[in-house]
Nucleic acid binder design. Structure first.
Lengths: 131, 131
DNA sequence: ATATATAGGTACCCCATGGATAGTGACTGC
DNA sequence: GCAGTCACTATCCATGGGGTACCTATATAT
């Protein structure tokens, strides 16, 4: 799990190796909810309910789970205001903002190339049916 | 599922909306095996077994499944040579290469920032124990 | 002749994880 | 006094990721 998984690579880490720390980081990032929650936090600090409304279809369980993972890994900061009804705000850390720029590019790519992929899927289905 | 999920966004797609095509694209990309297989194909065309050795820990089932999804979505091309023992080669399409550059940045990020995240996790655990 | 290795997969089973639904506490507004 | 707000937690169920075994057809080794 330490950096000695690939001493010859630029940063001493190699995500292709299953027990390398960078592999587990990739595992954490490989979630559509991580993309979307980080994307929703990119413009600035947000409350729980705002995130839930922005990320359509996320359940409270998955939103909480995703936020806790991001907090644990130092990408998100959580601030609780002891008022009633409760008020909790989330914001990206420096590390989180750094990552958000990259994840955002992927999100934009998926929006840009959605038609290409839809066409590819259609062609693939077509080929399946006609032989 | 069509582009009318967000007519006002730059490309007519919005990944935050659950039934938008770009959301399903993000869903497809949100897999560590997609990252690693695309990363392994980035330098050039590769055989099945080469991919299996490069992506440490991937099972034949997941490798096949991942490659089929990438092929279906037009990111990877598959070429079969009818010889014995069988020979099958995979390579990125133009669309796949385009994506690979982005995914590669994420993989590099995860290698660069693995120590930061390890430290954050350690601090998080520490806080749990001491209160 | 028999055993083993290769290459690129399938077939099968199991359990962890994701997803859906319901509930909770402490107030405020009607 | 009843519904609504807010940020969750608890519980159940189904999907799908993951592991193992197996397949075909040949070349090589014993």
């Amino acid at each position: 799990m330490d950096s000695d998984c690939a001493p010859d690579t630029p940063f001493g880490y190699d995500a292709f190796r299953r027990h390398c720390m960078s592999h587990t980081v990739l595992e954490m990032l490989a979630s559509k909810w991580v993309y979307l929650v980080v994307g929703a936090l990119k413009p600035g600090r947000r409350r729980y309910g705002e995130l839930q409304r922005k990320v359509e279809g996320i359940t409270p369980k998955m939103l909480t789970q995703t936020l806790r993972v991001l907090e644990r890994d130092g990408l998100v900061r959580r601030e609780i205001f002891p008022v009633i009804p409760p008020r909790v705000e989330y914001e990206l850390t420096d590390l989180g903002r750094n990552l958000a720029d990259l994840l955002n590019q992927i999100r934009v790519w998926s929006e840009q190339h959605a038609p290409d992929i839809r066409d590819a899927r259609a062609r693939s289905l077509e080929g399946e049916l006609t032989g």
